[in-house]
Amino acid sequence: MEVSVLGEAVIRTHKLTKWYGKHRGVIELDLEVRQGEVLGYLGPNGAGKTTTIRLLLDFLRPTAGRAEVFGLDPRRDSIEIRRRTGYLPGELALYGNLTGQEFLRYAARLRGGVDWDFTHGWAERLKADLSRPIRTLSHGNKQKIGLIQAFMHRPSLLILDEPSSGLDPLIQHEFYRMVAEAKAEGRTVLLSSHNLPEVERVCDRVGIIRDGRLLTVEGVASLKERSLRRLEIHFASAPNSGVLAGVSGVQDVEVADGGILRCTVRGSLDPLVKALARFEVINLVSHEPTLEEVFMAYYGGDLKHAG
């Protein structure tokens, strides 16, 4: 593995744009993935996640703008980039006539310098069956072989397109551990997903893409902070509905029976807490915002394409 300064950009795109004829791929994308981080790339199907990834690996040529991986040009230095990158395609297709073992050996020979012990280690951890012809394997079991193939050469950059699709929960957790280990070893991971809990769990930062445009890139923690929080306040005596009027960040106030008030708070809770100090509050229930809700805020409530 090459030595590089922590935090340096491993992937950087500048106004990266791809049109497929009249169909939109991605538009003026400025994305940066830093050395040693796990960046979640979140968006509904068709938003442009896969297009971005395919541009980085030189499957596609940009219509405008440019990209850099390891500071190299995806087209001119494609081989060097691919040597240092492990890739799991979103729509994985393997050679059905080969066994997992034969396929991995083939990929390993094409890469060169693969430590076969590691490969077997990963196969054991993921409970992958390498002895059967790939065409007889289920989607999840094929996915495991795709994952081993991506991790096999211990690359400094992992690009994983919808990696956990089809994996059962136990194997998914094993996969999350593999990602965490890769991060601990200083590797960089770009992980596309429309599975929000997954991104929440394994990523440091999240880039949200919609209709080909990057909406935001933020730390998972700060995203949650800026998001909507649902609160339930239990008062000792029934409040009137105007009680929180004018308190900054509070919306959707709704009074229920038994002195219960529900509302949504955007951003800091402080103004609300100050306002509540005047009352006798028995209980305060806060629902931790899931990324689903964060997502909802960015997507204007339209999640019907988000799979």
């Binding site: 690996l57 499957f59 081989i79 691919r82 395609p89 297709a93 094409l110 890469r111």
Partner: peptide, 10 residues
Amino acid sequence: GTLELLLSLP
């Protein structure tokens, strides 16, 4: 679809 994985190798 096998071309994709093949061309992701060096």
